[in-house]
């Protein structure tokens, strides 16, 4: 575990906590894409199939359980919670998200490190995570007005990806047999998707004005 990996995990954890905080205390999920949250739940479900068979560390197991639990409870809140679900902007969140899963599945069947069910599902989760943020970004572009917590949530998610790239660079130079093209390419694409958002986030921060995306 290096400092970049830890920073990546912590910003990822913080992003989830910020979102849960918003939903749980303000009882609102305004501006949050249910489609993206459903994709994240599928990402964690398919990636952590080895949760009980492949033990790495207490830290890993606890973090996996947190990400699984939080992603499914966020989906539950938006779909089922009596108050929260009323704040969901259904009309702004029209991305046909399940169509994103097919290309990821086909790609995972053909491009993987080992052709086994667990490995293909793991690879599928890597591909799907790379594009899972798209419905959320489309929704941001539509609503344009972004509240502070939603802005921080997406910023923290992007920061998590950026730290993971630094972690891979660090591991490449410090560990043997550490070449993972699949995760690297998918991870870089995923991080690039946040580029535009980062630009406007830093602009608003620098000029001390409310974050608003251009039409």
């Amino acid at each position: 575990m290096n400092i970049f990996r830890l920073a990546g995990d912590m910003t990822h954890l913080a992003s989830v906590l910020v979102l849960l905080l918003k939903i749980h205390t303000i009882k609102s999920c305004a501006g949050i894409s249910l489609k993206t949250q459903e994709l994240f739940a599928i990402v964690f479900l398919t990636r952590y199939l080895d949760l009980f068979t492949n033990f790495i560390s207490i830290y890993n197991t606890i973090m996996k359980l947190i990400f699984l639990g939080s992603s499914f409870s966020i989906v539950w809140y938006i779909r089922r919670h009596r108050v929260v679900r009323r704040s969901y902007d259904k009309d702004q969140d029209t991305f046909r998200h399940f169509f994103l899963m097919w290309p990821c599945l086909i790609l995972a069947i053909f491009i993987n490190e080992k052709f086994t069910l667990k490995e293909v599902m793991w690879t599928f989760s890597i591909y799907l995570e790379a594009i899972a943020i798209l419905p959320q970004l489309v929704m941001l572009q539509r609503t344009r007005n972004i509240d502070n917590l939603t802005g921080q949530y997406i910023f923290l998610l992007g920061a998590y990806r950026a730290f993971y790239i630094l972690n891979w660079i660090y591991r490449y130079f410090t560990e043997e047999h550490y070449v993972h093209w699949i995760t690297w390419v998918a991870g870089v694409i995923q991080t690039l998707l946040y580029g535009d958002f980062f630009y406007y986030y830093f602009q608003s921060w620098k000029n001390n004005v409310k974050l608003e995306l251009p039409a």
């Binding site: 990996r5 995990d9 990822h12 080895d50 492949n54 790495i56 560390s57 890993n60 973090m63 996996k64 990400f67 793991w122 993971y164 972690n167 591991r171 560990e175 043997e176 047999h177 550490y178 993972h180 995760t183």
Partner: peptide
């Protein structure tokens, strides 16, 4: 530690 596996990442 020289493990070289991306499976220990989240």
């Amino acid at each position: 530690e020289r493990t070289g596996s991306s499976k220990d990442e989240l």
